[in-house]
Nucleic acid binder design. Structure first.
Lengths: 237, 237
DNA sequence: TCACGTTTGCTAACGCCGTTAACGGCGCAT
DNA sequence: ATGCGCCGTTAACGGCGTTAGCAAACGTGA
């Protein structure tokens, strides 16, 4: 993995580009992330960026990947800060970290979890961003794996799950090479639906019609989901 | 509400504009919904559209309003098709209709429930689209009201709800002038989080990493939520 | 019927955008 | 030292939202 001088300055330039793009996204909004603006910030001209990315869209995809990594790192550090054997604390930490990150990085969050960029999921080719996205998802799945291993919460037996769903879950488990009951994956997905649903609605302002401060509502959901997982959610801190 | 000839042709033109915009959205994708393209389809030029809308963004907001109305109508007709006193059937119909509409109108759905268009929810001025959005939300809320009135599902008592959440729910209830327990509104919001979360994840392809066919997974969630509401969800049809 | 103000379309233009082509200089390896 | 490849440039194309200025059509009241 040793890079020559040439490759090093190239990698550094790519980093500077994506960081400039991200800063523009944060400070000016997604519409301000143009090739000309990025180049201007870097003291270059727009066509020069084509030496590093084949298109504006691919540049954005790279930013998406970086953002996923950033979010994943935040989750990991949140998990690390929790007491090693307090599963309830770890679960709370991960979910709250996700919400906090979304709250503190609304525009970045929109890029990750809002409307997909391109035409629409037609040929979903494998790229840097989708790999980072999978790594992010895996962080939560591994948390569930640990949760279930240390403190098995009630989970439907394989035979109890509808055939259609079971087959897909089995295929997913095999693809990942994980060893855990299908019901655990099912519960993971259901929890993810609620976590993602609550945070997205809130961040995109789709709860404003009813709630002025969605935070306690989120905490309520967090407590419910935690109790579904057999965790002790009485300690609110 | 009688309109002169002048106003009638104006209203008709506005309709033609939004319908052309919507057709472009459906057939070519959101990036194809440009003023020039709309005008071209109508045999006009782009600046002429400024006689009807003050900006491209406002035109899109009007399309959003129309789409909300379309979706709301679909929900109502789905509800109407269900047996009048079979609450489980009505609940299933509404949720399935929502998912089906989202599935059959992916790009429109993205416009309604994806990343908000403008800078980002700063000055949320009242406009046609937000009014239609509220009407849509009310459709679900009224369903819950009817559900609870005819078949009261278990709901936390007002005193059991955390102060922070209770106050907001009370304010929302008073704003709407509805007469139903705060716990019912709370359950409504929680169900909406799950319904919206599941459908959005699925439509935006954010469940592809695990599931190839999300429909049975959705049906599972539907059954769970329905049972939470005390409905008989055994009949799958 | 005619004149007048309003409404509705047009063309031309501005400054953006993503993208491509052609070209020059700089660094590195032979 | 020479040549090649990488990296940046300028110029340009077509398309975008938007504005200004103008002309024709329209409805209305005298």
């Amino acid at each position: 993995m040793n890079l020559g001088r040439r490759e090093r300055v190239r990698a550094a330039t790519i980093m500077e580009i994506t960081e400039t793009a991200r800063r523009l996204l944060v400070q000016e909004g997604s519409e301000a992330v143009t090739l000309r603006a990025i180049a201007r910030e870097m003291g270059m001209t727009a066509p020069a960026l084509y030496r590093y990315f084949p298109s504006h869209g691919q540049l954005l995809r790279h930013v998406v990947g970086d953002l996923f990594n950033d979010l994943t790192d935040a989750l990991h550090s949140g998990l690390h800060a929790a007491p090693e054997h307090d599963m309830a604390a770890k679960f709370r930490a991960a979910c709250r970290e996700f919400r906090t990150w979304a709250h503190d990085h609304r525009r970045e969050y929109a890029l990750l979890f809002g409307t997909p960029l391109p035409g629409f999921g037609q040929e979903e080719q494998e790229d840097f961003a989708s790999e980072c996205g999978r790594r992010f998802g895996l962080t939560f799945l591994e948390l569930f794996q640990e949760l279930w291993a240390k403190l098995p919460f009630p989970v439907p037996a394989d035979a109890e799950i509808d055939d259609d769903v079971r087959e897909q879950l089995a295929a997913y488990r095999d693809r990942l090479g994980l060893d855990l009951p299908l019901g655990c994956i099912l519960v993971f997905l259901q929890c993810w639906v609620r976590l993602h649903g609550a945070v997205s609605l809130e961040v995109f302002g789709h709860l404003d019609f009813a709630l002025t401060d969605p935070e306690p509502f989120f905490e309520l959901m967090l407590r419910e989901v935690g109790e579904r997982l057999g965790l002790d959610m009485t300690n609110p801190a």
